[in-house]
Simulated assay, not measured.
Amino acid sequence: MNTERPAGLDWIKSTYSGDEGGECVEVAAALSAVLVRDSKERGGPQLAFARDAWTGFLFDLGQGKS
């Protein structure tokens, strides 16, 4: 398991996230993966997805397959 945390990433907060502090996620693109984290726990765990898996996930969301 790779626990390396790349530095200098541009994290993007979900457009569905408000300022109320609800359930929010942030996404960042690293060289070999797309990372996802809880916006309230920025130093906490991160999920890493292969770029092609993330692209497929977004495509399926757009097709209403969620």
Rank of each mutant, 00 (worst) to 15 (best):
E20F: 03
N2R: 12
Q63L: 14
L31F: 01
A29M: 11
W54N: 05
V36N: 06
L35V: 06
C24E: 00
V34K: 03
A30R: 13
A48N: 08
T3L: 15
M1T: 07
G22C: 04
C24Q: 01
A53M: 15
D60F: 00
Q63M: 14
D19Y: 10
W54V: 12
G44F: 05
D10N: 13
G44N: 13
R37Q: 03
R42M: 06
E4N: 11
Y16K: 07
R37D: 00
L61N: 13
F57M: 14
V34A: 02
Q46P: 03
G64V: 12
V25K: 01
F59L: 15
D10A: 11
L31R: 15
G64K: 14
D38K: 13
K13F: 02
A7Y: 02
V25F: 04
K65M: 08
E23G: 11
E4T: 10
L35S: 05
E20M: 03
S66N: 10
E41V: 12
D52R: 13
G21S: 05
A28Q: 07
A50H: 11
L58V: 14
G43V: 09
E20L: 05
G62M: 04
G18D: 00
S39N: 07
A53C: 10
E41D: 11
A33Q: 09
G56A: 13
F49V: 11
E20K: 12
T55P: 02
A50Q: 15
R37G: 00
G64R: 13
P45W: 01
W11G: 00
V36Y: 00
D38M: 06
S14R: 06
R42T: 12
R37W: 00
G22S: 14
E4A: 14
G43M: 09
Q63A: 15
L47E: 00
D60S: 14
F49P: 08
R37S: 03
S14C: 02
R5N: 08
G18A: 01
M1Q: 13
G18P: 01
Y16L: 06
A28S: 03
R51W: 01
K40V: 06
F49T: 09
K65E: 10
M1L: 09
A29G: 01
G22V: 08
S39L: 04
F59K: 15
S17P: 02
F49Q: 04
Q46W: 04
S39K: 10
K40I: 07
R51P: 08
R51Q: 14
G64F: 08
E20N: 14
R37M: 07
R51S: 07
R51F: 00
A28E: 00
L35R: 06
D38F: 06
D52Q: 14
G21Y: 03
V27S: 07
D60C: 11
R5W: 01
F57Q: 06
F57V: 08
E20S: 10
P45V: 10
S32V: 08
K65L: 13
P6H: 02
G56H: 12
D19M: 14
G21R: 08
A29N: 05
V27Q: 07
D38E: 08
M1E: 07
P45E: 04
K40G: 02
L61W: 04
S39I: 12
G56S: 15
Q63Y: 02
L58T: 15
A50N: 04
L47Q: 04
G64H: 10
S66G: 15
S32T: 12
Q63C: 11
A7T: 15
N2D: 10
D19K: 15
E41R: 15
A33D: 08
F59W: 11
D38T: 12
G22L: 05
D19A: 11
